[in-house]
Amino acid sequence: MAVSLVNRFEQDNIIVEQIDNLLNWARAGSPWYFQFGLACCAIEMMAAAAPRYDLERFGAMPRSSPRQADVMIVAGTVTLKMATRVKRLYEQMANPKYVISMGSCANSGGPYWQYGYHVLKGVDLVVPVDVYVPGCPPRPEALMQGLLELQKKIKEDTPLRRVS
């Protein structure tokens, strides 16, 4: 559907813009996350999903199969052994897909950045990251703010229009 629309409309017009807005609203309003909790940040991710700070309020349902997830929240230290698996699971996700890097270890290798011989220095070396949430571990509110930042980014996207 999307391809033929793009071909048929030579210039961006109001219809395509409205469809874009609809798609962006839908994708931002239901960011099903692939729970990729690797280490301590996983606890904070679970805390964010727990009743106190409820991630499901934003429509973010946890899915365990990568094919049904939109957002991969990489929470925790990515070791070199795990890095190949992270890449594989990222490739199994269906487009459009996004990655939130949660915590210092996933952002840059964290406290292991200097001497950690077994740690991947930042998950953005294997998958493209959209939002970096800093913290060691980040508070659940910080993770939610990261999710809101991702929603903002999704809403700026233009799936059908040509302008960037």
Partner: peptide
């Protein structure tokens, strides 16, 4: 504590 960014 909420200073998430899009760029490293």
């Amino acid at each position: 504590y909420e200073f998430a960014v899009r760029d490293r």
